[in-house]
Computed example of a mutant assay.
Amino acid sequence: MTETPMTPERLAEIRERLEAARHLAEVGTTWAAQEYSVIGASMHDTVLLLAEVERLRAELAARLTAQVVWLLEQGEDHEGGSVLGVFAHREAAWGAILAAAHGMPFAIDAAEEGKDGSRSRHGGCDWLTLTPHTVTTTEAIEAGDVR
């Protein structure tokens, strides 16, 4: 027996057959009632399977794109800057932040914290930032789930 791939078009065809069989079953055709029962059970299983596949795909995509790293950067206004470090979580950057802040030539005159947990310090024309960045994997890009 050759299996027909389950596509949205095939699912629509099965739904049409099921609706026609249900209508015939209502008017009393034994064959239609049997077909309705068989197709209905098969379609129900297929819909459940498709829903589970979609749920797993979404879960995998979320896992693949959910990783966040924290970049510690330092530089001068209008001159650019450089990355001092990449950290798996914000707390891991504290030692490097303190060292970089103590190394700034001017006293810190402004400090901000963003809603995303980012931090920035400014002293004279020098700045220091710690910002979150989402890591997108090759698998996520290939799955078309790039945020």
Rank of each mutant, 00 (worst) to 15 (best):
T2V: 09
M6G: 06
M6W: 13
T7E: 06
R10L: 07
E13K: 03
I14Q: 09
I14D: 12
E16H: 05
R17W: 01
L18R: 07
E19W: 03
A20E: 13
A21P: 01
A21I: 00
A21C: 06
H23T: 08
L24G: 11
G28M: 08
T29M: 10
W31A: 15
W31N: 12
A33G: 14
A33T: 08
A33S: 12
Q34K: 14
Q34P: 09
E35T: 07
Y36S: 15
Y36C: 15
V38E: 11
G40I: 01
M43N: 10
H44W: 02
H44Q: 10
D45R: 10
D45C: 01
T46G: 07
T46Q: 12
L48F: 08
A51F: 04
E52I: 07
R55E: 11
L56R: 15
L56M: 15
R57V: 03
R57F: 01
E59Q: 15
L60G: 07
A62E: 14
A62Q: 13
R63K: 14
R63D: 12
R63A: 14
T65G: 13
T65L: 09
T65E: 11
Q67I: 04
V68N: 08
V69Y: 11
V69L: 13
W70E: 00
W70I: 03
L71N: 09
L72E: 03
L72V: 03
E73M: 11
E73F: 01
Q74H: 09
G75Q: 03
G75P: 06
G75R: 00
D77R: 07
H78F: 07
E79G: 01
G81I: 01
V83M: 06
L84A: 05
L84D: 01
L84G: 05
G85R: 03
V86M: 13
F87L: 09
F87D: 07
A88M: 07
H89W: 08
G95Q: 14
I97P: 04
I97V: 13
L98K: 14
H102D: 12
F106V: 00
A107Q: 04
D109V: 00
A110L: 05
A111F: 08
E113V: 12
G114I: 00
G114A: 11
D116A: 03
R121T: 00
R121Q: 07
H122N: 09
H122E: 09
G123R: 00
G124K: 00
C125E: 09
L128N: 02
T129C: 08
V135T: 11
V135L: 15
V135P: 08
T136V: 15
T136Y: 12
T138R: 15
E139Q: 14
A140S: 14
A140I: 05
I141N: 05
I141L: 10
E142N: 14
A143I: 02
G144P: 05
